[in-house]
């Protein structure tokens, strides 16, 4: 009797790992394929059956891709936009979350509900008018256009407010008795106590800003202002059948984020799960 159960258990364990490993392979496959394709020669790419790895890794593909289109410029633009939006987001999010969690002002509940309600609105409804606004402000083809609309996010504000509210009110009251101004309390107590959450928000914003596609596409015309995602798509059209270069270019776009992910995934995962779990 017991032996039967043991055998069943072992089979179940093995099956479990088989499934998990198969799933892992399925998950990573596009990445591996991207890297390996980027290092193949054009001949290797059209080889049937396709080899998993190139004979000799063609690192020069990256150099060619980099020089074939102004990727350096694209990279700089992406970095500038990402850093500026993230800095802006952090400032507005901290200020707003502090106001919602600690300060008392008339209409607070209504305004908070309003912020939450905006999360329901699909961006597709807003994009037309926002494009129009950018045109009217003559911000087309500028950094401002890519940064300003995104420096406040109701989502991050909601997230951080939840975190801030977990700090006991007694700390705020104690600080008040000790003649600590609201602003000072926010900077010296609230922010340091919630370092992890704020860092998570920063990382999440870096990722979404880096990967942004549609909006930069809309508001930029010239090559000088293009970001990596738009540049990659452009390059795909231009490079046509040079798949190995296209793959290399994709790598350039994807790799920095993957590296950040591998080192900082704790913060990313925490940020995403916190938003999902009811706290």
């Amino acid at each position: 009797m017991k032996n039967n159960r043991k055998v069943v258990n072992i089979i179940a364990e093995v099956l479990k790992y088989v499934i998990l490993v198969a799933g892992s392979v399925f998950t990573i496959l596009p990445f591996i394929w991207m890297i390996s394709s980027s290092l193949k020669t054009p001949a290797e790419l059209v080889q049937v059956p396709p080899a998993l790895f190139p004979e000799v890794p063609q690192w020069l593909n990256y150099k060619s891709a980099w020089e074939a289109a102004p990727f350096a410029r694209y990279l700089v633009n992406t970095i500038i936009v990402t850093i500026c939006t993230t800095a802006g987001v952090l400032v507005t999010t901290v200020l707003s979350a502090f106001a919602f969690s600690r300060l008392n002002f008339p209409g607070k509940k209504t305004v908070f509900s309003l912020f939450l309600a905006t999360l329901m609105i699909p961006g597709e409804m807003l994009i037309i008018t926002n494009y129009e606004t950018i045109i009217k402000l003559k911000w087309i083809d500028s950094y401002r256009a890519m940064i300003v609309p995104w420096i406040s996010s109701a989502f991050y504000i909601y997230l951080l407010t939840r975190f801030f509210m977990q700090v006991p009110e007694s700390l705020y009251l104690a600080a008040k008795v000790d003649k600590c101004s609201d602003f000072k309390y926010m900077i010296k107590i609230m922010v340091p106590m919630n370092k992890q959450a704020i860092f998570s928000i920063a990382i999440l914003n870096i990722i979404s800003s880096w990967n942004a596609f549609l909006w930069p596409l809309l508001v930029t015309n010239s090559q000088e202002m293009r970001v990596l995602s738009n540049g990659l798509v452009r390059f795909q059209t231009e490079a046509g059948s040079s798949t190995e270069l296209i793959m290399a270019a994709s790598c350039i776009l994807v790799m920095p984020i993957i590296i950040i992910y591998l080192f900082l995934r704790k913060y990313i995962i925490e940020g995403v799960t916190r938003s999902g779990l009811k706290g």
């Binding site: 006991p168 007694s170 700390l171 009251l173 104690a174 008795v177």
Partner: peptide, 8 residues
Amino acid sequence: GLVFQNYA
């Protein structure tokens, strides 16, 4: 001087 229940 005020001391809170949870010390704050």
